[in-house]
Write a protein that binds this DNA or RNA. Structure first.
Lengths: 166, 166
DNA sequence: GCGGATTCGTTGAACATTCAAGGATGGGGT
DNA sequence: ACCCCATCCTTGAATGTTCAACGAATCCGC
């Protein structure tokens, strides 16, 4: 698969600057939001994202695997995360009626409240760090670019991996 | 500081899509590179970045605080990281001659070798995931955007925080 | 020089993530 | 019915990160 011994195309100066800027910006932003949420909602950013997903789901509940897929994390990570959120009383589990293997993660009222209280601060933080600093053009561009990157790394989202295409 | 009770400007549809794309893309890419490097270089992406910094530094060494600043991580995190890299024999520590509090992190020959061997695969991974998928325009745009974000989150890089500006 | 504030780097505990393994159920073919 | 394999989710151990606290050395104003 990976050709060895072949000298790769190194990054040129401009590419290096771009890559560095990417790494710095993403790292700083993630840290920033983690701290903001740890302070205001007592949980890291990823956990907050899980609650948001649940809040938007039909009956404020979601199958574990589906939640993991939406949040782009492994099922293992989700299991641990939900365990902790459950300890805090923000989420509870329930057996899935139709599939005895399945579990539903359910947002509790307490969880919803935490979300309600911390959402404004969080949106503000995101605006201040990101949207307020970018022009309309740049926002549009950012969206397109990020969608392209995500698509390229998606482990075969719906429609791909059809047997007759191999 | 944070105004309470004030309804924030929520994200509109387009902004939400952009933000989501950002979160997904950055998460997927970081995971992807972490796995790639864990496989090929036996270390996570951040640790690899530390070795790169050291390799580019004057005598392949750097003061801990400076290294932390360049890598955008806390000194604590760096301390732990260097401890581990030291165990692997890729880095060693040395007292700083001019400041008895200081430590230099030094890239060993073994460390340099690991870097040499894994760099090609890493660059290829970055290209495949990012640069190969973006037009020149988009690359330029991405660089600009990321620099803006990073600047906004920099905890007062040189020149700011001047007393007479408070 | 003195003394207080600051910087340097580390430490340990709590928390988070990854990885490999495993138990249980479901689905499909025969 | 049966078997085999896939999927669902969890678990524990190893690893990585955060946070608060700390000792040592340096800096700065007097």
């Amino acid at each position: 698969m990976t050709t060895h011994n072949e000298e790769p195309r190194w990054l040129n100066d401009e590419e290096q600057r771009t890559w560095r800027a990417y790494l710095h910006a993403t790292m700083l932003l993630e840290d920033h939001l983690d701290r903001q949420l740890q302070r205001d909602a007592k949980m890291p950013h990823v956990y907050y994202g899980l609650l948001v997903q649940l809040a938007q789901a039909p009956r404020r509940r979601m199958r574990m695997t589906e939640l993991a897929r939406h949040a782009k994390i492994t099922r293992s990570r989700l299991s641990h995360a939900i365990a902790r959120l459950e300890k805090h009383g923000w989420v509870r589990r329930e057996d899935c009626p139709s599939d005895k293997r399945g579990q539903n993660a359910i947002l509790t009222d307490e969880g919803y409240e935490v979300l309600e209280q911390s959402a404004p601060g969080h949106v503000t933080a995101v605006r201040q760090a990101l949207f307020d600093r970018l022009s309309q053009e740049q926002q549009k561009s950012l969206g397109e670019i990020m969608r392209i990157i995500a698509e390229g790394l998606q482990p075969n989202e719906a429609g791909a991996d059809l047997p007759w295409l191999r």
